[in-house]
Computed example of a mutant assay.
Amino acid sequence: MVRGHILFAFVLLMGFGLVYLLAKELVLIYVSALFAAVLMPIVNRIMQTNIRGRRPSKAAAIFLIVSGIGLIVGIFLTVGLPPVLHDLNQFSAELPSRISKMISRLDQSPIANRLGVDAIAQRAEGALTTTASYLMTSLPNWLSHLFDIVSAIFLCIYFMLDGDRAYNFALSLFPTPHRQRLKTTLGRADDKISNWLIGQGLLMLILGISSTIVFAILHVRYFLLLGFLMGLFNIIPIAGGVVTITLSAIVAAFDSWTKMAGVIVFYIFYINVENAYLIPRIMGSSVELSGLTILISLLCGTALAGVVGALVAVPTAALIAVLLDEYAVYRDETF
């Protein structure tokens, strides 16, 4: 009996050690499986399409989806990304001189000496210059993760092709009386995650396009870069919007306070429209997580896996919430 406990503890420690060593690979597998689950409803819909009396196979449906995504990415890389990179390079080159001009305008205010504007400006200039330099110098490091991106794409394709077999095998590890309940629970969680990711993608697109148009109308410099960042970072709830609107307001303030005010007014207007109109119609009740839960999941996801962890934090929290609701929450029975 004691020998069995020792063996169990040894196997458990080996399992924890293996998870620690393969943390990066496990995150990659999890992200790939997550996006495969999101794309599978689209694959099934394509497979149900009747084309001259024939229905596309799963492989053909996946090929169409991958080709469509590849076409969109290719158009973005050749048409949309070069102006964004040009704006980023120009922004980092002109940043020190623009900070000096803005500080000179602040010095003319009567409370500048009390606030210690010069000292704050020196620190802000150093911090912003360091940040801009980091963004430019770390770009090759980001590109070095291309292998991970390609691996995730192939894993996602294989999950879509052979995911049903792996899913059924995982369910077979549970006793038969509990298997159907777990399958129903995971199906409900999959619906929530799929709806959230698709809805979040639409919200990112809407914010990116609308902010680019508004920034262009306001003649904000680097409006393509700022609009791109506004849409991209919108996938990170709360924190992404705060960071990007702060950056956009600072860039607009380099030219005039009027532009900065216009940027802030636009974002306040957009947030109200998004909360009152877009989210109820696009997202519906797909996740049903409180703001505190989202913040905690973002903090934990970022601490565990950086940017990737932040991206999958909310879907993971939705999955955990569904499992807890089914297996851990005790409800008072009403008679």
Score class of each variant (00 low, 15 high):
112 A>P: 05
112 A>M: 10
112 A>D: 08
113 N>Q: 12
113 N>A: 14
113 N>S: 13
115 L>P: 06
115 L>M: 15
115 L>K: 13
116 G>V: 09
118 D>N: 11
119 A>V: 11
119 A>K: 14
119 A>R: 14
120 I>C: 04
120 I>H: 11
120 I>L: 12
120 I>N: 06
120 I>E: 05
121 A>T: 08
122 Q>Y: 13
122 Q>E: 15
123 R>C: 05
123 R>T: 11
123 R>G: 08
124 A>P: 02
126 G>M: 11
126 G>I: 07
127 A>S: 10
127 A>W: 01
128 L>E: 07
128 L>W: 04
128 L>F: 12
128 L>C: 11
129 T>E: 06
130 T>Y: 07
130 T>K: 09
130 T>R: 09
131 T>R: 07
131 T>C: 08
132 A>L: 15
132 A>T: 14
132 A>G: 14
133 S>R: 15
133 S>D: 15
133 S>I: 10
135 L>A: 06
135 L>Y: 03
135 L>W: 02
136 M>V: 14
136 M>R: 14
136 M>Q: 15
137 T>H: 13
138 S>T: 12
139 L>M: 14
139 L>N: 11
140 P>W: 10
141 N>Q: 13
142 W>R: 13
142 W>G: 07
142 W>K: 14
142 W>E: 12
142 W>M: 12
143 L>R: 08
143 L>M: 10
144 S>G: 07
145 H>V: 05
147 F>L: 11
147 F>Y: 07
147 F>A: 04
148 D>C: 06
149 I>R: 03
149 I>F: 09
151 S>P: 00
151 S>K: 04
151 S>H: 00
151 S>E: 04
151 S>T: 05
152 A>M: 10
152 A>Y: 01
152 A>N: 02
152 A>E: 04
153 I>Y: 04
154 F>E: 12
154 F>W: 14
156 C>I: 01
157 I>F: 05
157 I>A: 03
157 I>D: 01
159 F>C: 02
159 F>I: 00
159 F>H: 00
159 F>T: 00
160 M>C: 03
160 M>D: 00
161 L>P: 00
161 L>Q: 00
162 D>G: 06
163 G>H: 01
163 G>M: 00
163 G>C: 03
168 N>M: 06
168 N>K: 08
169 F>I: 04
169 F>R: 09
171 L>N: 00
172 S>A: 15
173 L>C: 10
173 L>K: 12
173 L>R: 13
174 F>Y: 11
175 P>H: 04
175 P>W: 00
176 T>A: 13
177 P>C: 02
177 P>A: 02
177 P>F: 01
177 P>E: 00
178 H>R: 13
178 H>D: 12
179 R>C: 08
179 R>I: 05
179 R>M: 11
179 R>L: 11
179 R>N: 10
180 Q>Y: 07
180 Q>H: 13
180 Q>M: 14
180 Q>L: 13
181 R>G: 05
182 L>C: 10
182 L>G: 03
183 K>V: 02
184 T>R: 09
184 T>W: 05
186 L>W: 02
187 G>E: 03
187 G>F: 00
188 R>I: 04
188 R>K: 10
188 R>Q: 06
